[in-house]
Amino acid sequence: MPNFNFPAAAGWQAKIVPGGRRLPNETMSQTKPILAIKNLHVSVEDKEILKGVSLTINAGEVHALMGRTGSGKSTLSYTLMGHPRYKVTAGQILYKGEDLTAMPADARARAGIYLAFQYPVAIPGVSVSNFLRAAVKARRGTELTIKEFRKELREQMNRLEMKDDFLSRYINDGFSGGEKKRLEILQMSLLKPELAVLDETDSGLDIDALKTVAGGINAMTGPDLSVLLITHYQRILNYITPQFVHVMQEGRIVLSGGSELAHELEARGYDWVTQEPAATTDAAVAQALAP
């Protein structure tokens, strides 16, 4: 496993969560983390949603974040992207060692952070092709010629099995669930982020679409891309293998482990996280983390 030397002698920290379990909440490695979230508290309209999230992702790693609906996964994804509605009240988000908290969304995007939205927004009147060109120009800082742009676009669209008429349609306007998710991944392939947060990119996809979209994501993963893959179900993890799985509950990460944890969750349900005695969980974690 790349960059995986958990638990490192000095860096490992334990945290006691309700239920008395010890949880690893930070992984350390020799490489500098691309993302380090430290004790993050986030409020929406004065209601605290995230209550101390800590998570470290090193370059090239794929982390899955699972949890029930309403546990705060999308809140974390919006916060990472810099949505002004989500207020950081305590803690830090370090991207390549720099604190992001004051950075607006567009600057984060240009710096290489990408969010695939759980619910992509429709913008009537703005064609996909105009938008993609503007976005690519913003991210890369130079404008591609129409020819170069078309060529690159065609390749990526073929891979995602998207038809040309997509380009003249308006952003997400009247798109099916699957079309929206494909457009999210198409944008990601053009913007070439270093850190991608994929918020339930799998939900609403039939099995063929899921395979295509997962294939698109897998084609991008590698040492230059780190991924936080947010999902409600284990299903997409049959196609994309994370090195780490985290479970969120009521605004906190309550459990972390290796990819097996996802299967365990699938088999036993999220209730297991709260109900099972600590020992089982620790055993699962220990197993997951064994080299």
């Binding site: 810099g82 969304a105 939205f117 976005a135 944008q187």
Partner: peptide
């Protein structure tokens, strides 16, 4: 926000 999240 959607457009800004793409760098605009």
């Amino acid at each position: 926000f959607y457009l800004m999240s793409r760098g605009l």
